[in-house]
Design a protein around this nucleic acid. Structure first.
Length: 439
RNA sequence: GGAGGGAUGCCAGAGCGGACGAAUGGAACGGUCUUGAAAACCGUCGAGCCCCUCGCGGGUUCCGUGGGUUCGAAUCCCACUCCCUCCGCCA
């Protein structure tokens, strides 16, 4: 949510920012239109309220002094004022609700640093790392779903039998490989020495995966993406589409101590997506499923400078992971028009998967400025100082794992059909160096 | 699932129709004292919104949430949520 005062004081700048991402400007105009009348109404109501309060106090004193008649007269006056106040309150509440509703539908302002452009074609490749896509050998050009079947480590058919299309099942080495990657990622996040200089340790969290409606609203996943989430009707709970949801809401409604910032959290969870708009797309293999594993990094900061440092820290950690896994990847700077509604700046990481010959989005690292924190009401305060400020939030995947598994299987497939296990994962797999070739 | 009890400021905890934005204690912060520290003492010490003659003003809202009663609600009534205790069930 944008700051109403900013919209009021610099409407043109806000309009220009929203235009950069091609956003609908109608809600903004509506807010500007209603804001003036809201303030008039509020002032008038507060004024009447003040008179009621003063009169009531007087009535109390008169009763004590035994001047009942005087008191009765004032009672009548106060009652009339009270009725007027009720009318004004109803009006004010209605206008206020409408402003809030419009405000929730205005996306975040893109960072001035986000590249211009309105579609994904305008995203900028910041850098590419690792082997060139054209340099992969013939034995690496096998899609991971074929590898998975060949080695018996991915069992799509059984997953479909149990849960339907777009569900995945890992078996044996596949399940162990996945678990090793998750474990490695969580453990390395806890180690400051594995991040960039000036960074810190990320506290591991294991949050609930079912959350309340208001928790989903906090991050901006509701009401806009209602179709994307699974809803448990009986208890009115939602399955989380990403750990960003519970992590960002951890401090909802709280005032954080400035000394504790930045706060860094990491969590591994299942993520659930109905993929309502993508039915029938990427249904093979691991590219898109209703339930998948992801490790997330999420941080709270006191403002832009600290937040961007965190964002860079997340990116650096994600890159390091991909390097350790021996994958080729590239970093995209999303253009203003391709940013998610809550984000001010986003860097996507795409890993190259030679078997499907495509760049797979495995991570998305975003800075939200104070947009989410204002929605979820997360503030900070310096001890001993007056006033509070809205936090900034940052989050990024330290990998969406299914696509990373796909890229690892395809990249590390050997001529004999075995899969070379990246060195960092070997200790977690009993020291094994390969997933054995099919017999 | 059944039966009780509870929700107040950073924390603990009083208040149970008018003088309450809220006693008291602790924490924190500033100061006095001290070579320094502790102790003691003094002071400060929640947040949101609005207004203006922009002053270290004024008004207003907030005592779990939402309604209601009343001239007036932290205090009374209703609903909801959450927490605790006991019983039941249970990985």
């Amino acid at each position: 949510m944008l700051d109403l005062r900013r919209i009021r004081s610099e409407p043109d700048a806000v309009r220009a920012g929203l235009s950069r991402r091609g956003a609908d400007l109608a809600p903004l105009d509506r807010v500007l239109e209603l804001d003036g009348s809201l303030r008039t109404l509020t002032t008038e109501r507060d004024d009447i309220r003040a008179r009621v309060n003063a009169t009531s106090k007087q009535i109390g004193e008169l009763f004590k002094a035994g001047e009942r008649d005087e008191a009765e007269i004032l009672k009548g006056e106060s009652k009339a004022l009270g009725d007027r106040e009720k009318e004004l309150a109803a009006e004010t509440d209605a206008v206020d609700a409408e402003i809030r509703d419009a405000l929730l539908r205005i996306p975040n302002l893109p960072s001035p640093d986000a590249p211009d452009g309105l579609s994904e074609d305008d995203n900028v490749v910041l850098r590419t790392h690792g082997a060139d896509p054209s340099s992969f050998a013939e034995h690496q050009r096998v899609p991971h779903w074929d590898i998975g079947t060949e080695l018996g480590i991915i069992d799509g058919e059984r997953a479909v039998k149990i849960s339907g299309s777009m569900f995945t099942m890992y078996r044996g080495w596949g399940a162990r490989l996945l678990r090793a990657m998750i474990g490695h990622s969580l453990d390395s996040s806890a180690d400051p020495s594995l991040g960039p200089a000036g960074g810190g340790a990320w506290e591991e969290i294991r949050p609930p995966t079912l959350v309340k409606t208001e928790t989903m609203i906090g991050t901006g996943h509701l009401p806009k993406f209602e179709e994307e989430a699974y809803h448990v009707a009986k208890d009115d709970l939602w399955t989380i589409p990403t750990a960003e949801v519970p992590l960002t809401s951890m401090a909802a409604g709280e005032i954080l101590d400035h000394d504790d910032l930045p706060m860094r959290f990491t969590a591994y969870t299942s993520c659930f997506r109905r993929e309502a708009g993508a039915a029938g797309r990427d249904t093979r293999g691991l590219l898109r499923s209703h339930e998948f594993d992801k490790v997330e990094l999420m941080g709270y900061a006191d403002g832009e400078e600290m937040a961007i440092a965190l964002q860079e820290e997340v990116l650096a950690r994600s890159e390091r992971l991909l390097q350790e896994l021996g994958l080729s990847y590239r970093i995209l700077d999303l253009c203003a028009g391709d940013l998610g509604g809550s984000a001010a700046r986003t860097w996507d990481i795409e890993a190259y998967a030679p078997g499907v010959d495509d760049w797979l989005e495995v991570s998305s690292v975003s800075w939200f400025a104070d947009y989410q924190a204002r929605r979820a009401d997360v503030r900070w305060k310096k001890a001993g100082e007056k006033g509070t400020q809205i936090c900034h939030t940052v989050n990024g995947s330290a990998m969406g794992w299914p696509r990373t598994v796909a890229a690892v299987l395809e990249t590390h497939r050997q001529a004999d059909g075995s899969i070379a296990i990246p060195e960092v994962l070997q200790p977690r797999l009993g020291g094994a160096t390969h997933i054995p070739a099919p017999e």
